[in-house]
Structure formats: structure tokens, C-alpha cells
């Protein structure tokens, strides 16, 4: 029974990734793409936690913490790049 629920969770996770990839391809403005990349980071954290749940390895949670920190720095850097690029072009 647990195995079935884990497969359902993995299926939902795969569906989420497909939606994000389509969103990344469809949105034309840079801000929306940064939002999608941010959502991809949240997706990856959830994937790490699912991996921890399935394998029973607590080390995957460490990976998720690292991912959360890297995603934060990434989002801040991209936002700053977006803000400064528009300022210098206008």
C-alpha cells in the first residue's frame, strides 16, 4: 500500500516537472522565467524529501537544505541582474 502511494507521489512530482518545463518554454518575459526557475528549486526540494522518504536516508534532507540555500542565492542574484539590466538599458 505504501509502495502504491510512493508511486503516486512520484507520478505527481513528474507531472509537476512537465508543467514547469512547459511554463519555462511558454513564458516570454524574464521575470516569469525566474519565477519558474524558483518553482523548479521548490520542486527539487520536494523531490529530495521524497527520496529521503523512499530510501530512509536522512542525508537527502541535508541535500534539500543545501538546495534551499542555493536557490535563495540564485533567485536574489537573478532578480538583481534583472533590475540592473533594465536600469542600464533605460
Amino acid at each position: 500500500m505504501n509502495g502504491t502511494l510512493f508511486i503516486a507521489a512520484a507520478g505527481l512530482l513528474a507531472l509537476g516537472l512537465c508543467l514547469l518545463v512547459v511554463a519555462l518554454a511558454r513564458h516570454r518575459d524574464i521575470a516569469s522565467r525566474i519565477v519558474v526557475v524558483d518553482a523548479l528549486a521548490s520542486w527539487a526540494i520536494a523531490a529530495c524529501l521524497l527520496a529521503a522518504a523512499v530510501s530512509g536516508e536522512a542525508a537527502f534532507v541535508d541535500v534539500a537544505i543545501g538546495f534551499a540555500l542555493a536557490a535563495f542565492l540564485g533567485t536574489i542574484a537573478w532578480s538583481q541582474a534583472l533590475a540592473t539590466s533594465k536600469e542600464s538599458s533605460s
Binding site: 500500500m1 505504501n2 502511494l5 510512493f6 503516486a8 507521489a9 505527481l12 512530482l13 507531472l15 509537476g16 516537472l17 508543467l19 514547469l20 512547459v22 511554463a23 511558454r26 519565477v35 519558474v36 518553482a39 521548490s42 520542486w43 520536494a46 521524497l50 522518504a53
Partner: peptide, 21 residues
């Protein structure tokens, strides 16, 4: 119950991705 909560969390992730799309 814990596995069911995991599935609910994944459904919320799908909702977030759908909203982003």
C-alpha cells in the same frame, strides 16, 4: 497516513506548477 500526507504535499506542488503555467 504519513505516505498519504506525502501524496497531498506532491498534489500541492502540482498546483503550484499549474499556477506558474
Amino acid at each position: 497516513i504519513a505516505a498519504a500526507v506525502l501524496v497531498v504535499g506532491m498534489a500541492l506542488i502540482v498546483l503550484a506548477c499549474f499556477g506558474a503555467l
